Computed example of a mutant assay.
Amino acid sequence: MRSILGLVVLVVSATLYLYLLTAFLPPGPRHERRDEEGKTIANEFGEVEMEEDRIHFPSDLEELRDLAALLNFYKNEHKAYVILLFCSAYLYKQSFAIPGSSFLNMLAGAIFGTRDGLLIACAMSTIGSTFCYLLSHNFGKKHVVRLFPDKVAMLQKL
């Protein structure tokens, strides 16, 4: 039970850390708000309403392009913050074995360039995979042995 509680605390802490990093971003680029038809939205005084782009994990290539443009803006204005945010998000996805790291590999190249993006992606992939192994070794080993004793015994024989 202790290992499951420790894992839950670790996941919640990492999620909160990542949330706080994105919630307290420095001000980003602003653009006009538009409705579903593409018309500009104005308030009751006739002033055009403005909104900021938000950072989120991309789910397709179009979102990846939009995110790369937004992070390039942030990189020019707040380079250290972008590196911290990118590395934190990459480690989060790798450490907890969340699919989608290929999008982050492409995003690394789009933000940091081919050479630096490759170095950052390789380093984060290595560190994140090590964290994933350590998490499974420290928090999951007992449960896997308890739940699948026959499979574990077979694999140990091989």
Rank of each mutant, 00 (worst) to 15 (best):
residue 1 M to A: 15
residue 2 R to A: 15
residue 2 R to M: 14
residue 3 S to G: 08
residue 4 I to D: 10
residue 4 I to G: 11
residue 6 G to I: 04
residue 6 G to F: 09
residue 7 L to F: 15
residue 9 V to Y: 10
residue 10 L to W: 10
residue 11 V to W: 10
residue 12 V to P: 02
residue 13 S to C: 13
residue 14 A to Q: 06
residue 14 A to R: 04
residue 17 Y to R: 06
residue 23 A to I: 01
residue 23 A to P: 00
residue 23 A to Q: 10
residue 28 G to N: 05
residue 28 G to Y: 03
residue 29 P to N: 08
residue 29 P to H: 07
residue 31 H to L: 14
residue 32 E to H: 14
residue 35 D to A: 08
residue 36 E to R: 15
residue 36 E to K: 14
residue 37 E to M: 12
residue 37 E to Y: 13
residue 38 G to R: 10
residue 38 G to C: 10
residue 38 G to Q: 11
residue 38 G to P: 07
residue 40 T to K: 15
residue 41 I to F: 06
residue 41 I to P: 04
residue 41 I to N: 08
residue 41 I to Y: 08
residue 41 I to G: 07
residue 42 A to S: 14
residue 43 N to T: 06
residue 44 E to C: 07
residue 44 E to F: 14
residue 45 F to C: 05
residue 46 G to I: 06
residue 46 G to M: 06
residue 49 E to P: 00
residue 50 M to I: 12
residue 52 E to C: 07
residue 53 D to T: 15
residue 53 D to A: 15
residue 54 R to S: 14
residue 55 I to W: 09
residue 57 F to P: 03
residue 57 F to S: 09
residue 58 P to Y: 06
residue 58 P to F: 05
residue 60 D to I: 05
residue 61 L to W: 13
residue 61 L to V: 09
residue 65 R to P: 00
residue 65 R to S: 11
residue 66 D to T: 09
residue 67 L to K: 03
residue 68 A to W: 03
residue 68 A to P: 03
residue 69 A to F: 12
residue 70 L to S: 09
residue 70 L to C: 05
residue 71 L to G: 02
residue 72 N to P: 00
residue 74 Y to V: 02
residue 77 E to K: 14
residue 78 H to P: 00
residue 80 A to N: 12
residue 82 V to F: 03
residue 82 V to A: 02
residue 84 L to S: 13
residue 86 F to R: 03
residue 87 C to S: 12
residue 87 C to T: 13
residue 88 S to Y: 00
residue 88 S to F: 01
residue 89 A to H: 01
residue 91 L to R: 01
residue 92 Y to E: 01
residue 93 K to T: 07
residue 93 K to R: 09
residue 93 K to Q: 10
residue 96 F to M: 05
residue 96 F to T: 02
residue 96 F to N: 03
residue 96 F to I: 05
residue 97 A to F: 11
residue 99 P to H: 05
residue 99 P to M: 03
residue 101 S to I: 08
residue 101 S to W: 04
residue 101 S to K: 04
residue 102 S to F: 12
residue 107 L to H: 01
residue 107 L to R: 01
residue 108 A to S: 11
residue 108 A to I: 02
residue 108 A to C: 04
residue 110 A to D: 06
residue 113 G to E: 05
residue 114 T to G: 08
residue 114 T to K: 11
residue 115 R to M: 11
residue 115 R to E: 12
residue 115 R to W: 12
residue 116 D to E: 13
residue 116 D to N: 13
residue 118 L to A: 09
residue 118 L to V: 09
residue 119 L to H: 06
residue 119 L to Y: 11
residue 122 C to S: 10
residue 122 C to T: 10
residue 123 A to I: 04
residue 124 M to H: 00
residue 125 S to R: 01
residue 125 S to P: 00
residue 126 T to A: 12
residue 129 S to A: 08
residue 129 S to G: 13
residue 129 S to D: 05
residue 129 S to M: 07
residue 129 S to Y: 08
residue 130 T to K: 03
residue 131 F to D: 00
residue 133 Y to Q: 00
residue 134 L to T: 01
residue 136 S to P: 00
residue 144 V to T: 09
residue 144 V to K: 07
residue 145 V to W: 03
residue 147 L to D: 13
residue 150 D to P: 02
residue 151 K to T: 15
residue 152 V to K: 07
residue 153 A to Y: 04
residue 153 A to E: 15
residue 156 Q to S: 14
residue 156 Q to G: 03
residue 157 K to H: 14
residue 158 L to W: 12
residue 158 L to R: 13
residue 158 L to N: 11
residue 158 L to C: 06
